[in-house]
């Protein structure tokens, strides 16, 4: 039996307290890129009771994604937006979802992300990350941006950290380990970096801005 919305909210309120639950449930967070980072970020935020998620990705679930991304074997071939929306609704049935199955460009970013209080960069490609970060920070200066750089390989988990770069820009990762070097991405280390991003979002919503 799926709990009612009231039961759901009561359980989260009992866990987080009234004030924090209100801050989380009133928030809109955009997750841009739904791979190893984005799928994990979205699940963490939905579980914590973030009210609305904007999910953006143009790609489909592939067999090579399943070693680190939060999809299931039966979802291969689906758009990641649709597959993640399905999974999120199973986990947190009352989360409000807006999906954009599209490539985010410098032209459409402002329109797609205008409702978001906080934007998570969760792309794979280094140049796409930089273009997106520069675009959001320049064109949407009132938004918080939480981005990631450096989480590949089996290196020490403790090298992954969160740094505050400006009052609106946080960067998670070790800022070094590139997917091109070595064995590529490993589920646990990507999850750690995704957890840093999700945790930074929740701390911002809780008005804990320092790192």
């Amino acid at each position: 039996m799926i709990p009612t919305k009231e039961e759901w909210n009561r359980a989260l309120e009992a866990r987080h307290g009234k004030e924090l639950h209100r801050a989380f449930s009133c928030a809109t967070v955009a997750v841009c890129g739904l791979g190893g980072l984005g799928s994990n970020i979205a699940i963490a935020l939905a579980r914590a009771g973030v009210g609305r998620l904007i999910l953006c990705d143009f790609d489909r679930v592939d067999i090579t994604n399943l070693h680190r991304q939060q999809y299931k074997a039966g979802q291969i071939g689906m758009y990641k937006t649709d597959a993640l929306a399905q999974n999120l609704k199973e986990i947190a049935p009352y989360v409000s979802l807006t999906v954009h199955t599209a490539r985010i460009t410098e032209e459409n970013a402002a329109a797609l992300l205008s409702d978001a209080d906080i934007i998570c960069e969760a792309f794979d490609d280094a140049e796409c990350k930089a273009i997106f970060a520069n675009n959001v920070l320049s064109e949407l200066p009132d938004k918080y941006l939480v981005a990631a750089s450096g989480m590949a390989g089996l290196y020490d988990a403790n090298r992954i950290q969160t740094r505050k770069i400006t009052s609106k820009f946080y960067l998670c990762g070790d800022e070094k380990s590139d997917v091109q070097d070595g064995i590529g991405l490993v589920s646990s280390r990507v999850m750690i970096c995704a957890a840093h991003e999700a945790h930074t979002v929740l701390r911002i919503l809780a008005k804990q801005f320092d790192v």
């Binding site: 890129g33 791979g35 190893g36 980072l37 984005g38 969760a122 792309f123 794979d124 490609d125 280094a126 140049e127 990350k129 930089a130 970060a133 981005a147 990631a148 750089s149 450096g150 989480m151 590949a152 770069i165 960067l171 990762g173 800022e175 070094k176 380990s177 590139d178 997917v179 091109q180 590529g184 991405l185 990507v190």
Partner: peptide
């Protein structure tokens, strides 16, 4: 100034 470098992976 603080220069942030992006590397691939996500």
């Amino acid at each position: 100034i603080e220069i942030v470098s992006f590397v691939g992976g996500g």
